[in-house]
């Protein structure tokens, strides 16, 4: 399923135009990105929580040369699935 499929379904079910729905979906996703960049998290009840985790700097190896190279600390977006969604997917 892609964004286009979701937009299509929502437009059909609400009577809103595809353009209106697509704009809202895009803005929704963009804003989640903005929040995470600002270090905030977003909790969506019944779905899950988007947040940012910090990965510490670590040493890794170049597999070709065997040299140690430092991997700098970085931020990664994570999504914690709500219990409700887990149960739904597990088929309970």
């Amino acid at each position: 399923m892609t964004k286009a499929d979701i937009v299509e379904d929502i437009a059909q079910r609400t009577g809103l135009t595809k353009k209106e729905v697509a704009e809202t979906v895009d803005l929704f996703l963009d804003k989640i990105g903005d929040l995470l960049v600002d270090g905030k998290h977003l909790e969506i009840r019944g779905f899950g929580t988007f947040k940012v985790k910090e990965r510490k700097e670590r040493m890794a190896r170049n597999p070709r040369t065997g040299d140690s190279v430092p991997v700098p600390s970085r931020k990664v977006p994570v999504f914690k699935v709500s219990k409700m969604l887990k149960d739904k997917v597990a088929g309970d």
Binding site: I6, I10, F28, I44, F47, L85, V89
Partner: peptide, 14 residues
């Protein structure tokens, strides 16, 4: 619209 986004994703995964 926002609720239906989540619903679509949930149904697809299910």
């Amino acid at each position: 619209v926002v609720n239906l986004i989540m619903e679509n994703i949930g149904n697809a995964l299910a």
